[in-house]
């Protein structure tokens, strides 16, 4: 069984927002909606400062708060680790929006909650999510964490001391690993 995960190399991100636009195009989102966003942060004081972009999207947690709080069981986690919302069961109570530490869920105008699905329709056919393929600096890396020969597995094995998960305090155990600045 595949166990999908992603590595985001924060040091490479230049803040061009191509991933966001690609995601919006693919998922037919309006301009103010997106499944991923960049958290922009500035450190220091001129002239010694730097600015970082942290690409944030659904972390596909192994211990997802959105799944445990969902009152109808519409939020669920697949065996391959992708967290999804079953739009038929979603009643739009918005409790999962309140429970998500990453603030990545949006309300669709059809009345259900949606978020990054790791571009399931591409991944199931052996492809890559749109935010990965569109990135010009190769910030994101997507693959199967269970396959020891996959690019992402080798990368994680080599850089394990540099990788962190986002907002570890919540014990959500994300599937997205960040290489921090």
């Amino acid at each position: 069984m595949a166990r999908y995960g992603m590595v985001i190399d924060e040091t490479k991100c230049v803040g061009c927002y191509a991933c966001r636009v690609a995601c919006q195009n693919l998922n037919h989102l309006r301009e103010n909606e997106a499944y991923n966003f960049l958290e922009e942060r500035e450190y220091g004081k001129f002239p010694n400062f730097h600015r970082v972009f942290l690409p944030v999207q659904c972390q596909h947690c192994d211990n997802p708060p959105c799944v445990s709080v969902c009152p109808t069981g519409a939020s669920y986690k697949r065996k391959d680790g992708i967290v999804l919302v079953n739009e038929k069961d979603c009643i739009g109570c918005k409790y999962c929006i309140a429970a998500c530490p990453y603030n990545v869920r949006i309300i669709k105008k059809e009345g259900y909650i949606e978020k990054c699905r790791f571009c399931l329709e591409f991944v199931e056919q052996g492809g890559q999510p749109a935010c990965v393929t569109t990135c010009m600096t190769g910030v994101r890396m997507f693959g199967d964490l269970d396959d020891p020969n996959s690019e992402i597995s080798r990368y994680v094995a080599q850089n394990v001391h540099l990788l962190k998960t986002y907002k570890e305090e919540f014990d959500t155990r994300p599937r997205i690993f960040y290489k921090k600045v």
Partner: peptide, 18 residues
């Protein structure tokens, strides 16, 4: 609710964690 007419779905399931 975003979909008020589906509220009955709350009462056909029990989610212990929710």
């Amino acid at each position: 609710l975003e979909r008020p007419f589906t509220f009955w779905k709350l009462l056909v399931t029990v989610q212990i964690n929710s």
